[in-house]
Design a protein around this nucleic acid. Structure first.
Length: 508
RNA sequence: GGUCCGUUCGUCUAGGGGUUAGGACACCAGAUUUUCAUUCUGGUAACACGGGUUCGAUUCCCGUACGGACUACCA
């Protein structure tokens, strides 16, 4: 496959949905696999829905995820500009060519007239109330008006749109790389607006024109576009670009985890997982939606997870680096059915990639959190903590959460545990152990254990009899990482102090 | 409603005319771990339904059901 040119073409109406990230990823994988070009085009033809900051957000999100753009907004390239609003003057000539060829027409219908038409058809029991071959001759357009009248309206500045004149009863075929051949009868397609009354093209015209001009080889987009794909095919035909038409691949949708339907922000909020790659603050409502990044997801984990939502290599391997994904990716192996979004699997991937990191890398996460909490800790200690916590974490932040007891001595102890396990004998052993540790030099997990064994033996006990209490005394918790390692990290003096405090508060 | 798309364990999926229908996540159990977690071992669990075609269908075809997308001067 040579000259693969793909585009990710979001519209800046808000934060980038996680499904959009997957669409971008698949585009990117195909581009990289074939040494092609990944283009970012911003489809901002709807000026009323423009959200400030959305474009920057999209660019930052892709950058964070590791999806690199070769050409496009924020990057430039031979087909600049890549923002459709800036390409506005370009589109009209194509619409006019369509009119000149008799494939499109001016329409002057007001909103009320359109509404009236739909009502009329509905009342007549018509199954589809569309502006098309059945209805266009009853409407207010350049097909029904005299050339003179049209000219006058245009000159008078009467608002108009340009509509595609979709032929009646004609089979339109397209080959979708994922779904095979799709056939639609043109009578099902309405006379779509190509140019809006504000002079902007609609998505349909803009995307076809731009894909052609930008020499796009593959259009990989969500399944929600499949119904309008035949319309796009028609446009390529009318514009005389049939031979240059890109190949289509309509991706299965990302579905909500429970029940059915497209994954939405509401579902994500309700179930407590992010829907956006980066934290997004809605400029209008100031509502904040936490992102994957801020929630502690690693980009490599997210990408691996996303890649497998609708695609798989056909082998049993599930862990893929971005490069491996690139090497293995093929459109043919993309599934047809929608995929329910399973956040647990995402967490599993995250845990996996987190564990693959070195203690030094994990320590860096911990140190950052510690610093934000105004807790001082040296690198060596942080690395030791990372080492004993690394098997227990899903997110970087867990390191901080689970290591709190290292920096903060417990102030109260579980009543149940005390009443069950605490007695004078245990207190005596603990007191003796604390004393031993205080004087022990070069304390390690091994020596801490040896001393514990010796101390308990002196009291005719076994280590197991006091370990749970010891953990409670030292950490305030009933469960946690290896206690002897924890003691090594805390140091003899600190341990002794905590034991002393516990004896004082519990026996009182 | 209409059009289009889809349907293998709870979830992501592999597979494909004859298989003990495979893996992963999740879940459950056992082992290890003094705890929890990890790790290891094992387990529960699926071809939506009905007709064809065929010696044989989960796989191919047709229906049905169910689900989804679309049906704007939104993308």
């Amino acid at each position: 496959m040579d000259n693969v040119r793909v585009r990710f073409a979001p519209s800046p109406t808000g934060a980038l949905h996680i499904g959009g990230v997957r669409t971008a990823l698949y585009n990117y994988l195909l581009a990289r696999k074939h040494g092609g070009t990944m283009i970012l085009r911003i489809e901002d033809t709807d000026q009323t829905r423009y959200v400030p900051g959305a474009e920057e957000y999209i660019i930052e999100s892709l950058a964070w995820a590791g999806i690199q753009i070769d050409e496009g907004v924020g990057k430039g390239g031979p087909h600049a500009p890549y923002r459709q609003s800036e390409r506005k003057p370009l589109y009209k000539q194509y619409a006019e060519k369509l009119i000149a060829d008799g494939n499109a027409y001016y329409a002057f219908d007001t909103e009320a007239e359109l509404e009236a038409m739909r009502e009329r058809l509905k009342a007549a029991g018509d199954s589809n109330q569309q502006y098309g071959s059945q209805t266009r001759m009853q409407m207010n357009n350049s097909l029904t008006l005299s050339a003179q009248a049209v000219k006058e309206k245009l000159e008078a500045g009467v608002g108009y749109v340009i509509r595609l004149k979709v032929p009646a009863n004609q089979e339109i075929r397209l080959t979708d790389l994922i779904r095979g051949e799709v056939v639609v009868n043109s009578s099902q397609i309405d006379d779509k607006v190509l140019m809006k009354s504000d002079g902007m093209p609609t998505y349909h015209l803009a995307n076809v024109v731009d894909d052609y001009l930008m020499k796009i080889s593959h259009v990989i987009r969500g399944e929600e576009w499949l119904p309008s794909a035949p319309l796009h095919v028609l446009l390529y035909e009318f514009l005389g670009w049939k031979s240059a038409m890109p190949r289509f691949a309509h991706l299965p949708l990302l579905l909500r985890p429970d029940g059915n339907g497209k994954l939405s922000k509401r579902d994500a909020d309700r179930m407590g997982f992010p829907i956006f790659p980066l934290t997004w603050t809605d400029p209008a409502t100031h509502e904040v939606a936490k992102g994957y990044k801020e929630s502690g997801y690693l980009p490599e984990a997210l990408l691996n997870f996303l890649a497998f939502l609708g695609w798989n290599p056909g082998t049993e391997k599930e862990i893929f680096s971005l490069q491996e994904l690139i090497d293995e990716f093929t459109i043919e192996r993309i599934g047809k059915a929608g995929a329910k979004f399973d956040i647990q699997k995402a967490q599993w991937y995250n845990q996996h990639y987190l564990r693959a990191k070195s203690n030094a890398e994990l320590a860096a996460y911990l140190l950052t959190d510690l610093k934000n909490a105004n807790v001082t800790c040296d690198e060596a200690k942080a690395q030791k903590i990372a080492a004993c916590l690394r098997e227990r974490i899903t997110f970087p932040n867990d390191l901080f959460l689970q290591s709190k007891f290292f920096f903060e001595a417990p102030v109260q102890f579980d009543e149940q545990m005390i009443s069950k396990k605490w007695n004078a004998e245990v207190a005596a052993v603990l007191a003796a152990y604390g004393k031993e540790l205080q004087s022990a030099s070069g304390l390690t997990a091994e020596s801490a254990k040896a001393i514990l064994d010796a101390t308990t033996a002196q009291h005719s006990m076994k280590a197991g009899q006091v370990l749970q209490v010891l953990r409670m005394v030292l950490t305030g918790q009933g469960a946690g990482p290896d206690l002897m390692m924890s003691i090594e990290i805390m140091g003899g003096a600190e341990v002794a102090q905590r034991i002393e405090f516990a004896i004082r508060t519990i026996t009182k």
